Amino acid sequence: MITEFQLLDAPAVPTVVVKRAEVAATHLPELFDATFARFHAAIAEGVVAPSGPPFGLYLRMEDTLDIEIGFPGVLQSPDENLVASELPAGRIASAQYWGSFDGLPLAWAEFVSHVAGQGLSVAGPCWESYVTMPEPNMDPTTIRTDLFCAVS
């Protein structure tokens, strides 16, 4: 399920995000859809200058989630719904996942297991970068999502 496991020493990456706390996992699809619709408009209006693919950064994953959804890039003008943030710097594990979004929970389990197999542990936030956005009638095996987490 996952491929191309790597360890990186990464710099912080400036981002523009929507922050939400205590989100039930069952509400994530609606939250992502609404957030990306807002970003689509903000990019068209010149409010956001993205420099990479969209992502979801999981700050806390327990019964509910604290999450930042956004793009690497810069907030060009004030927006009441969007804030500047950053992807963390430091030692980062990464891998590619190819498949539908429904398979992400199993991909994360495989990824975290691989991290542990390297003698490392998750030491901070984890995030997904949505390299390929799905389109109607596309083969889900062609969807690429990159997985990342801070490790020690």
Rank of each mutant, 00 (worst) to 15 (best):
A109C: 02
G103K: 03
A12K: 12
Q118E: 14
A49R: 14
A84F: 00
I143S: 05
P134N: 03
L104E: 04
S100D: 13
M138W: 04
P29E: 06
Y97P: 15
A107C: 10
V13W: 03
A116I: 10
R91N: 09
M61H: 08
G119F: 06
A150H: 00
A24C: 07
E22I: 00
V48K: 15
F71I: 12
G70A: 12
T15I: 06
G56I: 03
S100F: 07
P105T: 02
D139H: 05
G56S: 13
P72K: 08
P11F: 00
V47C: 11
E128D: 13
E68Y: 03
V83R: 06
A84N: 09
L8H: 05
L59Y: 06
P125D: 12
F71T: 12
L104C: 13
P72R: 05
W127A: 04
G56V: 02
G90K: 10
G117K: 01
A123S: 15
A21I: 05
D66K: 06
M61N: 10
V122M: 09
F39H: 04
T3N: 02
A84W: 00
M133I: 14
E45M: 08
V16L: 01
Y130M: 03
P14I: 03
P140C: 00
P50R: 01
E45F: 06
I69V: 15
V17Y: 01
I67H: 09
G46H: 00
L8W: 00
L106I: 05
E4H: 13
L65K: 02
L87G: 13
A25N: 08
T3G: 06
A107N: 11
V74L: 09
I143Y: 05
P50I: 02
P29R: 02
S77Y: 02
E62I: 01
F55V: 02
S51T: 15
G119V: 03
Q118R: 07
W98T: 14
I92C: 12
P53Q: 13
D102M: 09
L31H: 13
T141A: 15
T26E: 11
A42S: 14
E30P: 03
L28N: 06
E22R: 14
R91P: 13
C149F: 00
F32D: 04
V48A: 12
L104I: 15
D102I: 01
L57C: 12
D9H: 07
